[in-house]
């Protein structure tokens, strides 16, 4: 029997991400969706595949001085510097709000030392209501930690091992594109026990105010995100998919359902929406609808039939 193309198959968009079943593959990228509450007036949080919260550290962090952001052609630079409330305040004040919704909560974590990553993981694992950990070893805007761990396979593996040893929750490691060979890092974290990798974090960039002859950002450099980075992100996702067995989550400039579908067809198991939230607060809702419309139009019954369906010659 031919399926009515207008019938929405329950669970058509569901994906299994290292044991975590998501109702659809659309997540919010860390740092672009706050702790969920900021977007609740504009989005039905219940409809999201997952919410990845703003990066959490052991203690609250003030972040970098302003100016922190600058729009560039087809993108934006940011150097927020991981300002956050700290993991304990997140659990006490932010997590209860998120738990009201039927949505997976992924805690993005950051540390200046391996021990800090370990302790943040321990605290989150004992708090009810966190469904997975995303390990940020790729922030370009802080002096200690961050990309210092993400740029070297051994250091990336050490952080992954430390987090892995502390939790039974799925561990996703978020990778930086600011390396010569991202597959090397991906393989290192896979061997160290990561359940999935997410990529890419921002590309390090810079912008100058020619009238004042000063950098636009107080931090001088910042991370480039937005549509400008999408082809680079997609290329790296494609490379990593071919070099590891664990699921890959695609991130980078995804603004529309078509953008998301490029990553899914290439083989990403899920996608994260970042800068697009700033451009259009309901971007995630439109992307979910657009993926569903595409699947109905192409008579694709489940995500497994779509993911990695990319045809290449040779």
């Amino acid at each position: 029997m031919e399926a009515d193309k207008n019938t929405v198959v329950p669970g058509r968009l569901a994906v299994d991400l290292c044991g975590l079943v998501l109702k659809n593959p659309v997540m919010t990228a860390s740092g672009t969706f706050g702790y969920g509450e900021e977007y609740a007036p504009f989005c039905d949080l219940n409809r999201l595949g997952a919410i990845v919260v703003k990066g959490l550290s052991l203690e609250p962090r003030a972040g970098n001085p302003p100016p922190r952001i600058m729009e560039t052609r087809c993108g934006m630079l940011n150097a927020v510097g991981l300002q956050n409330v700290g993991v304990r305040a997140f659990i006490a004040k932010k997590l209860p709000f998120l738990r009201q919704f039927n949505v997976a909560v992924i805690a993005n974590i950051f540390g200046e030392t391996i021990d800090e990553y370990r302790r943040v993981t321990e605290i989150l694992t004992h708090a009810a209501g966190v469904n997975a950990i995303e390990v940020n070893i790729s922030c370009p805007n802080v002096k200690k930690g961050g990309v210092a761990f993400g740029a070297h396979p051994d250091a990336a593996a050490s952080v992954t091992e430390a987090v892995r040893g502390e939790t039974d929750l799925p561990v996703i490691v978020k990778l930086t594109p600011n390396v010569t060979d991202i597959t090397e890092i991906a393989q290192a974290v896979e061997s160290a026990g990561a359940d999935a990798v997410s990529l890419i974090n921002t590309l390090t960039g810079m912008s100058v105010d020619i009238e004042r002859r000063r950098p636009h950002l107080a931090n001088v450099t910042g991370g480039l995100s937005g549509p400008a980075v999408k082809p680079v992100a997609l290329r790296m996702v494609w490379q990593v998919i071919r070099s590891v067995k664990i699921p890959v989550i695609g991130i980078g400039g995804i603004s529309t359902a078509a953008d998301a579908l490029e990553f899914l067809i290439t083989g990403a198991s899920a996608v994260q929406i970042g800068t697009a939230n700033f451009i259009h607060p309901a971007a995630t809702m439109e992307i979910i609808d657009g993926i569903e419309d595409y699947m109905i139009r192409h008579r694709i019954g489940c995500m497994q039939d779509l993911l990695g369906s990319l045809q290449t010659d040779g």
Partner: peptide, 16 residues
């Protein structure tokens, strides 16, 4: 201040 999101999520528009 320059803003990206306007709703409190991006932490781009901060003042000390």
């Amino acid at each position: 201040e320059r803003m990206a999101c306007g709703v409190g999520a991006c932490l781009g528009c901060v003042v000390a």
